[in-house]
Amino acid sequence: MYRASDELDNAEWLDALETAADSLDLGTDARTQARDVFLSTVPESERSKRARVASSLYVGALIAGEQRSQTAVAEAVGVSRLAVQQHWKDQLEATGLEPPGW
């Protein structure tokens, strides 16, 4: 879980998450899930936060049943697809969420 101050400390990254979610046309549930995942797993390093925003969006969309490709999410955030691929499973596990059955 995260603290309320985490939202303030990461407002810039949450704005980036919302902008990317707009371009991906994600619904409210996917956005909420993505915010929660990001804030629950936010890295210390500023350098890693953009990749975590992307993987959080990917996880949020999966959980909400609005699956988007790793490539589409990566492009929306401005990172490589590999950045999404490297982080999404760890974030999913760290937050205790499970993907829908495929």
Rank of each mutant, 00 (worst) to 15 (best):
residue 67 Q to W: 05
residue 72 A to R: 12
residue 62 L to D: 05
residue 69 S to D: 04
residue 60 G to A: 08
residue 85 Q to G: 01
residue 66 E to H: 15
residue 72 A to P: 14
residue 78 G to W: 10
residue 69 S to K: 03
residue 78 G to K: 06
residue 88 W to D: 01
residue 69 S to G: 07
residue 58 Y to W: 11
residue 80 S to C: 00
residue 75 E to Y: 12
residue 68 R to N: 07
residue 64 A to G: 01
residue 77 V to K: 06
residue 76 A to V: 03
residue 80 S to F: 02
residue 67 Q to R: 15
residue 73 V to T: 15
residue 64 A to S: 09
residue 80 S to P: 05
residue 86 Q to T: 07
residue 75 E to Q: 14
residue 67 Q to Y: 06
residue 86 Q to A: 09
residue 72 A to K: 13
residue 65 G to Y: 07
residue 77 V to Y: 05
residue 85 Q to D: 07
residue 65 G to V: 10
residue 59 V to P: 12
residue 72 A to T: 08
residue 64 A to V: 02
residue 76 A to Q: 00
residue 60 G to M: 13
residue 83 A to I: 03
residue 72 A to M: 04
residue 87 H to S: 07
residue 70 Q to G: 15
residue 77 V to A: 02
residue 60 G to R: 08
residue 60 G to N: 06
residue 63 I to E: 09
residue 60 G to L: 08
residue 63 I to M: 11
residue 63 I to G: 04
residue 83 A to S: 13
residue 67 Q to M: 11
residue 79 V to K: 01
residue 85 Q to C: 02
residue 62 L to N: 12
residue 88 W to G: 00
residue 70 Q to P: 10
residue 76 A to Y: 02
residue 66 E to Y: 09
residue 72 A to Q: 12
residue 78 G to R: 12
residue 57 L to W: 10
residue 70 Q to E: 14
residue 84 V to G: 05
residue 72 A to Y: 08
residue 71 T to R: 15
residue 69 S to Y: 02
residue 66 E to T: 14
residue 82 L to S: 06
residue 66 E to F: 13
residue 71 T to W: 08
residue 71 T to K: 15
residue 88 W to K: 02
residue 77 V to H: 06
residue 58 Y to H: 14
residue 75 E to L: 14
residue 73 V to D: 06
residue 63 I to C: 12
residue 83 A to L: 00
residue 78 G to Y: 13
residue 79 V to T: 08
residue 87 H to C: 00
residue 80 S to G: 13
residue 64 A to H: 01
residue 85 Q to R: 06
residue 67 Q to V: 11
residue 75 E to I: 09
residue 77 V to R: 01
residue 88 W to Q: 00
residue 86 Q to K: 11
residue 81 R to I: 03
residue 79 V to M: 01
residue 81 R to W: 04
residue 60 G to H: 09
residue 69 S to L: 03
residue 86 Q to H: 11
residue 87 H to E: 01
residue 63 I to F: 14
residue 66 E to M: 15
residue 58 Y to V: 01
residue 76 A to P: 04
residue 80 S to A: 15
residue 68 R to C: 12
residue 57 L to E: 08
residue 83 A to Q: 00
residue 83 A to E: 01
residue 57 L to V: 10
residue 88 W to H: 04
residue 88 W to M: 02
